[in-house]
Measured scan of single mutants.
Amino acid sequence: MQRVNMIMAESPGLITICLLGYLLSAECTVFLDHENANKILNRPKRYNSGKLEEFVQGNLERECMEEKCSFEEAREVFENTERTTEFWKQYVDGDQCESNPCLNGGSCKDDINSYECWCPFGFEGKNCELDVTCNIKNGRCEQFCKNSADNKVVCSCTEGYRLAENQKSCEPAVPFPCGRVSVSQTSKLTRAETVFPDVDYVNSTEAETILDNITQSTQSFNDFTRVVGGEDAKPGQFPWQVVLNGKVDAFCGGSIVNEKWIVTAAHCVETGVKITVVAGEHNIEETEHTEQKRNVIRIIPHHNYNAAINKYNHDIALLELDEPLVLNSYVTPICIADKEYTNIFLKFGSGYVSGWGRVFHKGRSALVLQYLRVPLVDRATCLRSTKFTIYNNMFCAGFHEGGRDSCQGDSGGPHVTEVEGTSFLTGIISWGEECAMKGKYGIYTKVSRYVNWIKEKTKLT
């Protein structure tokens, strides 16, 4: 034993070699072989497995989906700052455009905790909710729209109204504003409101030439003092309507412009014939205590009207009353817009006519005020429907199939267009061939041609 100890002390290297040989010859039971080890760690190889990531292109799944990435790591994937920024906006807080917040056709661009709407022409605001041009839906104005110097929408209202708090709607500024039905039992019968379409306001006024200088022999019209197929109006439903009495009662109609003036057809009036105007009328054979009678003290036909040349060209006249009318729910003026808007309103496509005229061709006159909704007829169809001249200051309205029309005794009465609950004068009943005849239409004086003249002559002093 002493000898062994001496050998170990003198030859430590020998001992180490012996131990190493023993270990190498022993069977290893701690580690699995290569094949079995792979069965336990069965993990798919990654895209760049075996390579240094710093030297390969980034992978979106590896960089940002398996674990949260930084902007720089995302930049490695896209290799483009702009594309990385677009991805980053949604990656950080989701897609803010998912709810489609942009209105009126706006395009949404996502941002971090926010979004941006790219608005089409005519709109602005956070969600493109603000109209900035009158060309689109009248700028959301209830009545009139004008573009300011910086191309912003400025709404306005006709006389007797003021802008509401929203700067879009119009509200009454006087007790009985024009064009409004205020009798409670008839307010439910107000005709369907007309909503502004998209309009090209630059070209809204037709490029028409008034044929002022045409000389033409007097034409022989049949029954051209021209509501057939209409309905009984309720008291106060058309408070701007008046009836004219002269040699015979209810020979023509008219509309209240203001307390002192009536507008009617020029062919209705004769110099030297006494005319009485009755406002607030409903049943011409009954006294309903809503009527107001006034005498006409002055007749002003349009300066281009000449019955000797043509009885229905420039067929418009103004009547001055001896005493002002007292405005109330049964006696209310009709609204008159400017030339541009009167023309736009007419193009809405349908209007209402009213009167006490004959209820059928050569038949009896109506006792109760009649009204009828009539569609506008395109000019080409209008011209083809008659052998008589249709001037540019006239328009056609009615039904091709016949059966409904204005008729004798309705002449001078109103053709009105309702705009968001307020009625505007767009025409004056003038003439036609018979009444409600198939293929024939009622012919009306186009008020847009005469609004400046009306307003100039009827100013209240």
Rank of each mutant, 00 (worst) to 15 (best):
Q2S: 08
N5I: 11
N5V: 11
M6R: 11
I7G: 12
M8K: 08
A9M: 07
S11K: 15
P12T: 14
L14N: 01
I15Q: 02
I15G: 02
T16R: 07
L19E: 00
G21M: 10
S25V: 12
A26N: 01
T29Q: 08
T29A: 05
D33M: 06
H34R: 10
H34Q: 05
H34D: 06
N36G: 08
A37E: 15
A37M: 07
N38M: 06
I40T: 15
I40V: 08
L41G: 15
N42Q: 09
P44F: 03
R46H: 02
N48T: 14
S49A: 03
K51Y: 05
K51L: 05
K51E: 10
V56C: 13
Q57G: 13
N59Y: 06
N59P: 03
L60S: 15
L60T: 13
L60R: 08
K68E: 15
C69W: 03
C69D: 13
S70E: 15
F71W: 12
E72P: 15
E72I: 15
R75M: 07
E76F: 15
E76L: 14
V77M: 13
E79W: 15
N80P: 15
T81Y: 06
T81V: 05
E82Y: 12
E82C: 08
E82Q: 15
T84K: 15
T85A: 08
Y91T: 03
Y91D: 07
D93F: 09
G94N: 12
G94M: 06
G94S: 12
D95T: 12
C97I: 04
C97Q: 02
P101W: 05
C102L: 01
L103V: 09
G105M: 13
G105E: 08
D111Q: 12
D111M: 11
I112A: 15
N113G: 06
S114T: 09
S114V: 05
Y115Q: 15
Y115K: 15
Y115P: 12
Y115S: 13
W118L: 12
W118Q: 05
W118H: 07
G122Y: 07
G122E: 11
G122D: 05
E124H: 13
G125K: 06
N127G: 11
E129Y: 05
E129D: 12
D131A: 02
T133L: 03
C134F: 02
I136A: 13
N138S: 12
N138Y: 06
R140Y: 05
E142F: 03
Q143V: 00
F144P: 00
C145H: 01
S148V: 08
A149Y: 09
A149C: 05
D150G: 11
N151Y: 06
N151H: 09
N151T: 08
C155H: 00
C155F: 00
C155Y: 00
T158H: 05
T158F: 03
G160K: 01
G160L: 01
Y161A: 01
L163Q: 02
A164G: 09
A164S: 03
Q167E: 05
C170K: 00
C170Y: 00
A173W: 05
P175Y: 05
P175Q: 07
P175C: 04
F176Q: 06
P177Y: 01
C178M: 00
C178S: 01
C178P: 00
G179L: 01
V181A: 08
V181K: 03
V181N: 06
V183G: 07
S184I: 13
Q185W: 08
Q185K: 08
K188Y: 11
L189F: 11
L189D: 05
T190G: 10
A192Q: 07
V195Y: 05
P197I: 04
P197F: 08
D198G: 09
S204H: 08
T209Q: 08
I210Y: 04
L211P: 11
I214Y: 12
Q216S: 07
Q216F: 08
S217Q: 13
T218I: 11
Q219L: 03
Q219E: 04
S220F: 08
S220K: 08
N222F: 12
D223I: 12
R226F: 09
R226D: 05
E231G: 09
D232T: 13
D232I: 09
K234T: 06
P235V: 06
G236P: 04
G236E: 03
F238W: 07
W240L: 00
Q241Y: 13
V243R: 12
V243K: 09
V243A: 09
N245W: 05
N245M: 05
A250R: 06
F251E: 07
F251S: 07
N258K: 02
E259M: 05
E259F: 02
K260N: 05
I262E: 01
V263M: 02
V263D: 00
V263T: 02
A265M: 02
A265K: 01
H267T: 05
V269E: 01
V269P: 02
E270S: 03
T271K: 11
G272H: 08
K274W: 03
I275N: 03
T276G: 05
V277A: 09
V277L: 03
E281L: 12
E281R: 08
N283P: 03
I284C: 08
E285H: 06
E285G: 04
T287P: 07
T287M: 07
H289G: 12
T290V: 07
T290R: 12
T290E: 04
R294I: 02
V296C: 02
I297S: 05
I299H: 06
I300T: 03
Y305V: 02
A307R: 11
A308H: 07
I309A: 12
Y312W: 12
D315P: 01
A317M: 03
A317F: 02
A317P: 00
L318S: 00
L319R: 01
E320D: 00
D322P: 00
E323K: 14
E323L: 14
L325V: 02
V326F: 08
V326I: 13
N328C: 03
S329E: 10
Y330V: 09
Y330P: 01
V331W: 00
V331D: 00
T332M: 10
I334W: 00
I336Q: 01
I336L: 11
A337I: 02
D338L: 03
K339Q: 14
K339N: 10
E340M: 06
E340Y: 15
Y341S: 14
Y341E: 05
Y341K: 14
Y341M: 15
T342A: 10
N343A: 10
F345T: 01
K347T: 14
K347A: 13
F348G: 14
F348R: 12
G349R: 10
S350D: 06
G351F: 01
Y352P: 02
G357E: 13
G357T: 14
G357H: 13
F360E: 10
F360T: 14
K362C: 04
G363E: 06
L367E: 14
V368P: 09
V368T: 15
L369N: 08
L369Q: 06
L369G: 13
Y371N: 15
Y371S: 13
V374F: 02
V374C: 04
P375M: 13
V377N: 02
V377C: 03
V377H: 03
V377S: 04
D378M: 05
D378A: 08
R379Q: 15
A380N: 07
R384F: 06
R384Y: 13
R384G: 10
I390L: 14
Y391A: 14
Y391I: 03
Y391Q: 14
N393A: 09
F395L: 02
A397W: 02
F399K: 04
H400S: 13
S406Y: 11
C407N: 04
Q408M: 14
Q408E: 07
G409M: 14
D410P: 14
S411T: 09
G412L: 12
G413M: 14
V416L: 11
T417M: 04
T417F: 02
E418W: 09
V419I: 14
T422N: 03
T422Y: 05
T422I: 15
F424L: 01
L425N: 01
L425W: 00
L425C: 01
G427F: 00
I428A: 01
I428L: 15
W431S: 10
G432H: 08
E433V: 05
E434T: 12
E434I: 13
C435Q: 04
K438C: 14
G439A: 08
G442Q: 15
I443E: 02
Y444D: 01
T445Y: 05
K446P: 05
K446N: 14
K446R: 07
V447T: 09
V447C: 03
S448W: 02
S448Q: 06
V451G: 07
I454V: 08
K455W: 05
E456A: 07
K457S: 14
K457L: 14
T458G: 02
T458I: 06
T461L: 13
T461Y: 14
